[in-house]
Nucleic acid binder design. Structure first.
Lengths: 304, 304
DNA sequence: TTGAAAGCGCTAACAA
DNA sequence: TTGTTAGCGCTTTCAA
């Protein structure tokens, strides 16, 4: 292009206040420079941090991020996946509900760029970012057993839907406690919807053999546990010790400061986005069904 | 359409596995059935809740939501606005940085559907959703003065950028305290970046006349305050009373339970989305520059 | 170097 | 009721 035409062009752009239309561009190029993320619930701190990390990378690459809230409802998830595809989104990062296996199967067969976060889906070959949940549960079990608590209670959201992190953490925690040679410790389990949790705790604590330690599976269950202990005026850790997975904003200045096992949410989100972008930009390189585990960190404080 | 052709059509859809292409549709219709939200920082609980409310309404209306993180940087905000427009997004909900007045001005002149959240921008005629910040500050001041604390300290993020909620809350709090007839109370102010806050608190508390009450302007400053008090082993409320704007997840079961002034984030987000959709669907009705204030709620607990 | 034209997949208007 | 066609704004190819 000659210098002359260039200035002419720039002038015209200026005068007409020309704004390119990316929709037309997308139609032609078959790329929307947009990716979609389907989270179970954006209100979880973990989801927020993951979204933030993904969004940062999108910004860097001049992409946009469409955020969808599946609310753990397969129906909603399905609708979102279809809408995202119809909008020619270049790739999807999902916290899969597990209720749309056939649909996900189809997407992978079409070679649609996709990454799963936090959860695996049985039988699907999709790259997945997970916490090393066994390690997290082991860290919790060891910490409680080393301090010689005698009656451990695991508090968890529903274990019935085969949600990866819950199942893996629960299994490993139970295994660890039972593996112990002396078999002198008691282990109780509470699992159910958040709204029923306090009632279940109440029941457990009315029994003769009260737990002296609680393992809260995630941030929301931790809230329930702390709220319950407060209501019952139970002291941490003298009456009951507490340890949990997921870092919470107040852990360090709670009374007492809470021992937690945190997951590197930002790095995990960033990694998911990096993999997705490598799929989008170099589709031939897709090797699919890689599972990448991130290490949890024990933050030893004073609640156990 | 006859019944016969209908079944034929459905069959064809099935066979060819036809998926409509919304990009082509958007190009023709000049509507992307997508809206954009530009938040200052998605990591704030308030932003998350607002996004959640907007997303819920989008889902209902078969729209999609593009989430952008401006990080309070006008440059980043500008890029996002331009990208969103280029993508023919049907409307924008923004937490404006205040650094792109001309650009926003242009958008309103074009009749581009837009709603501001949380912050106003001087001289712009844009519908805006705000908290009744004066009321919130007054609630805090009254609560502390009624309990007869003598040396009040207001802790705030930087007041230099004219960010609406900060300015309004600060002004009203100061006014309320000074209005008192006896003038016997002392008032200190700390304002600055989060990372400098602990140092400033330290300094203040080393002085002879120690504050006996703190008003934390939002959730992040509250974190700093609580963290500082914990470190200094200062008891709430016997050594220092605490009250804050923004509800935090742990308020009810903290030791002591925290008195907070909460804003109805979900309703505010929902309202913003409703207004935006009314602009999009009935553009003739736009009356612009309406300011809608929501009432804060005092949650009286035990920290003051 | 510049200009012209085809076509992405859809919708809307018109014709048959 | 059904079929045909123009055109949305861009990119890409080919011709001038």
């Amino acid at each position: 292009m000659s210098k002359e035409t260039r200035t002419k062009l720039e002038q015209a752009v200026e005068e007409l206040n020309y704004q390119p239309n990316m929709v037309a561009r997308s139609l032609k190029q078959k790329s929307s420079t947009t990716i979609g993320v389907i989270v179970a619930n954006i209100l979880h701190v973990y989801s927020t941090q993951v979204i933030r990390a993904i969004e940062d990378l999108c910004h860097e690459k001049d992409f946009h991020l469409i955020v969808c809230n599946a609310d753990d409802q397969p129906e909603k998830e399905k609708k979102y996946i279809e809408m995202l595809k119809a909008k020619q989104v270049d790739g999807i990062i999902a916290f899969p509900t597990g209720g749309n296996v056939a649909l996900y199967q189809q997407l992978t067969e079409e070679g649609y760029p996709m990454v799963f976060m936090d959860r695996t889906v049985e039988g699907l070959k999709v790259d997945t970012i997970l916490l090393d949940n066994k390690k997290a549960a082991a860290l919790a079990a060891d910490e409680l057993m080393n301090k010689d608590y005698r009656h451990l209670t695991m508090v968890s959201p529903p274990l019935t839907h085969q949600i990866t992190p819950r199942v893996e953490r629960a299994q490993e925690f139970i295994k660890k406690v039972q593996e112990e040679d002396n078999h002198t410790r008691k282990l109780s389990t509470i699992s159910g919807e958040i709204r029923e949790m306090k009632g279940q705790l109440q029941e457990l604590f009315q029994q003769k053999e009260r737990p002296d330690a609680i393992f809260a599976m995630n941030d929301l269950t931790l809230h329930e546990v702390l709220s319950f202990l407060k209501k019952e005026k139970l002291q941490i850790p003298s009456d009951v010790a507490v340890i949990s997975v997921d870092e919470v904003s107040f852990a360090a200045f709670y009374t007492p400061p809470l021992t937690t096992i945190s997951q590197p949410a930002f790095e995990m989100g960033k990694k998911a986005a990096e993999i997705l972008f490598s799929f989008i930009l170099e589709p031939e390189k897709q090797h699919r069904s890689k599972i990448i585990r991130f290490e949890p960190t024990l933050n030893r404080r004073e609640s156990c």
